[in-house]
């Protein structure tokens, strides 16, 4: 049902006549238009398959790399409760990576191929995780802002045309809301604490605000995949629409915390019923994406190290399973 032989299905179809392909494509698009789901064994255009593989695997990598900035604080969480919560949250991120790799594998790419692409630097992951977490408040800011932005992005994907991706997203969104609320609660505790604690929360908002706003990706004018992805119903809203929604819901939350959003141009537009915000530093966005963010090298290095350190475990587990199977066979 999952993975094996699925990619050959798509490729076989490429060898069919142009007329057949056109018929298959119009049948496919009609299904998508009717809000029907596409499932692993259904015919799909090769470009749809490749777009999904790229998007789902990048999403999975982001979850895996996303464990690193917060994992940094597990051993230094201020209380036992905070520590238990943070461990649960980081474990969830790992789980989300697993759901997504599992969904991507239904498209005919193997887990090892995807991990290989991450470790070689060929695959991208969300730019946000290349920023450092120097204080405890960053754990709060990540939950509140980064997970908040992720939820904004992910809720529409629950209705994505590709069944396995949509189902994985339903599961993920259910868990993300715990992440966002625990983050906000950390910020609230700091904001209501000593002046030093409040200053720590403000400094963290100053650091994470713009990277969070950038998480929605390039502006609509610059986004080359948006139109096609919307036609395929992989995407339901444009980057700028989602970014605007995020700013609109988050600014009042910052006000409640008594913190200041680090954007002097931020202003409420009564006529449009939206917050207007300042120009995004796209040079920074592209630099981080290209590998020149503050922590890109460190993150990839940590992933490679974990992979190498785990190699003997993976090999030993396989060898042990082989041994058990052969001794069970000879006992029978």
């Amino acid at each position: 049902m999952y993975t094996q032989g699925l990619d050959s299905l798509g490729r076989d179809c490429l060898h069919q006549g142009a007329a057949d392909t056109a018929a298959l494509e119009s049948h496919f698009q009609a299904k998508v238009d009717a809000d029907d789901k596409i499932e692993p064994k259904d015919w799909m255009p090769d470009a749809y398959r490749q777009t999904l593989i790229r998007q789902i695997s990048q999403h999975a990598h982001s979850e895996i790399v996303g464990m690193l900035p917060e994992g940094n604080w597990i051993t230094r969480a201020p209380t036992l409760k905070r520590k238990a919560v943070l461990i649960a949250k980081v474990q969830d991120e790992g789980g989300h990576g697993m759901y997504l790799y599992s969904a991507a594998e239904t498209l005919g790419i193997s887990r090892d191929q995807m991990i290989g692409q991450l470790l070689s630097g060929a695959a991208k992951y969300s730019s946000i995780f290349n920023y450092p977490t120097p204080t405890w408040a960053d754990v709060g800011a990540i939950g509140w802002l980064v997970d908040g932005a992720a939820i904004m992005n992910q809720i529409p994907i629950c209705r994505c045309s590709y069944g396995p991706y949509a189902r994985a997203m339903v599961r993920i969104c259910r868990e993300e809301s715990f992440h966002q609320r625990q983050g906000f609660e950390i910020m609230l505790t700091l904001a209501r604490g000593t002046p030093a604690q409040k200053a720590m929360a403000q400094a963290s908002l100053d650091r994470w605000w713009w990277p969070s706003v950038m998480m929605f990706g390039p502006s609509d004018a610059q986004s080359k995949h948006t139109a096609q992805s919307m036609r395929w119903k992989i995407k339901r809203f444009t980057n700028d629409e989602l970014r605007q929604k995020f700013v609109d819901v988050t600014v009042p939350q910052a006000k409640f915390l008594g913190l200041t959003v680090p954007d002097p141009a931020l202003a409420w537009d009564e006529a449009a019923q939206h917050y207007r915000f300042g120009e995004i530093d796209w040079a920074e966005f592209h630099a981080v994406l290209k590998g020149n963010g503050p922590c890109n090298r460190e993150r990839l290095e940590a992933c490679r190290q974990a992979h190498e350190a785990g190699r003997w475990v993976r090999e030993a587990a396989l060898a042990y399973a082989d041994k058990r199977r052969s001794s069970a066979a000879s006992a029978a």
């Binding site: 999952y2 993975t3 697993m98 759901y99 599992s102 969904a103 594998e105 887990r111 396995p164 189902r167 994985a168 587990a317 396989l318 042990y320 399973a321 058990r324 199977r325």
Partner: peptide, 11 residues
Amino acid sequence: VGSIHAVDARM
């Protein structure tokens, strides 16, 4: 619900 990689059924 999805899939999982493991060396055997128990794992």
